[in-house]
Computed example of a mutant assay.
Amino acid sequence: MTSASLQSAIESFGDPRGYLAVASIGLPPRQAVDALTADLEAWSLADRDPQGYDAVIERTRASYASLVGVHPDRVAQGSQTSVLTSLIAAAVPPGAEVLCVDGDFSSIVFPFLQRPDITVRPVALEALADAITDETWLVVFSLVQSSRGVVADIASINAAAARHGTYTMCDTTQGAGVLPVDASLFDATVCHTYKWLCAPRGVAFLTLSTRFDALLTPLHAGWYAGDDVWKSCYGPSMSLASTARRFDVSPAWQAWIGAEQSIALFDGLDINEVWARASGLGDALCDGLGIPQQHQAIVSWPDASGADLQKLLGAGIRASGRAGRLRASFHLWNTEGDVDAVLHALR
């Protein structure tokens, strides 16, 4: 039985039948659209000012912190995961090893590859925990693999990292909003919110453990990283925030108007219930396709030619193709009717 809070959230998305592409881009809830529309109207009437967005950003930071189980002081905000990851890549000591997943999303791999003075070693996701050694300074991985939807075995990875004194970084972009996330389990997490958290593009978060925070340099520091933002507009005098906020970048204001509504919506839900619904629909699709259940919100299967994807698109079903596989992603607005529509289109 669907809880009242989840049912209310589902209804806020209208009736987007056939939309199975949240792994590419989420859909905005009604309250986010209303808030954005009102903000754009106010802007057009010269009734907005930069300072007016500060409270919105702090409320959104607090909602996100609550959602992922950390204090707001441990959360920095940005606009792209690759930019946030670059702060971590810059902190890796020369000669150190960074362990990553072969085929993981480029935004959490490429920044490390820009460091010719470190070793970046890719391994299969299934071998990640066993591949950590005393020489591994940092292990980097996605909670949910973008191309296949596979959920990482974080217990094994974290246990191995603890044994070897290795720092951990997890990209939760394909998990937060559909799969329960505890960011306190990692030294660092990055997350863009335009997928499963259904926010406008341009709102991303970095969480940091206290021990890892001390190793990073706020290379992107600007006025919004200041201890007092509106007294930090001019240099060279610099007084950065003492919390993770010193890693903040100046925000894309309008995006935060929508993000506040979307992230607060998910923070008010039982994400275990959301996951049970989404992964349950995924398993129902696997059953219909005659393939082993994947227990994932993202169901994928080989489709190198793109023929299956074209069948779905031709039937008005929005899905996506990645790395030679078709990717159908289920979220809280999907129903068994979407599963039936996919199976009918493919047959």
Rank of each mutant, 00 (worst) to 15 (best):
G175Q: 08
F205I: 02
P180K: 09
L216M: 12
A162P: 10
L185A: 11
T173C: 09
Q174G: 05
A127R: 08
L138Y: 11
A155D: 14
A204L: 01
N158H: 14
T173W: 08
L206C: 06
D213A: 05
T207Y: 05
D134F: 11
G175H: 05
R148V: 10
F212N: 05
Q174S: 07
L197N: 06
E135Y: 00
S156A: 14
T173P: 03
E135Q: 01
V144H: 03
G177S: 09
T136M: 03
C170F: 10
C170D: 07
V150D: 10
C170Q: 02
V190K: 01
G165R: 11
L197E: 12
V178Q: 01
V178P: 02
R201G: 15
S146C: 00
D187S: 03
A152D: 13
R211K: 12
V203Q: 01
P218C: 13
V140D: 03
Q145R: 04
P180N: 15
L143E: 08
S147P: 05
A162V: 13
S147R: 03
G177N: 04
V150A: 06
L197Q: 06
A214Q: 15
P180L: 14
A160F: 09
A131T: 13
C170V: 12
G177V: 06
T193Q: 06
D182T: 11
N158V: 15
G177Q: 04
T133G: 08
T217W: 11
A183V: 09
S142K: 00
A155P: 07
T133S: 05
A176K: 02
S209D: 13
T166K: 00
A127W: 15
W137H: 10
H192R: 03
D182M: 00
I157M: 04
T210A: 15
A188Q: 07
D213F: 06
T166R: 02
T217Y: 14
I132F: 14
R163K: 14
F212L: 04
A131F: 12
E126Y: 12
A214L: 12
T217S: 15
S209G: 15
Q145G: 10
P180I: 14
V190L: 00
A162W: 13
V190Q: 01
P218H: 10
A131W: 11
P200E: 08
G202P: 09
S146E: 03
G202C: 07
R201P: 11
W196E: 13
L185P: 06
R201V: 15
D213H: 06
T207K: 02
D187C: 01
T136N: 05
C191E: 08
W137L: 04
A183I: 06
S146T: 02
V203K: 02
L143C: 08
V139Y: 08
Y194E: 10
W137A: 04
T166I: 08
F186L: 09
F141V: 03
A188N: 07
F141D: 04
V181T: 02
L215E: 15
G149Y: 10
P180Y: 12
E126P: 02
W137F: 15
V190D: 03
T168G: 09
C198P: 10
V178Y: 05
W137Y: 15
V140Y: 02
L215D: 14
T166G: 11
V190W: 00
M169T: 07
A131C: 12
A152I: 03
R201D: 15
V144F: 03
I157V: 15
P200L: 01
G149L: 05
Y167L: 09
G175S: 14
L125S: 07
V151C: 08
S184W: 11
A214Y: 14
T173L: 07
L179Q: 07
R211C: 13
A188D: 13
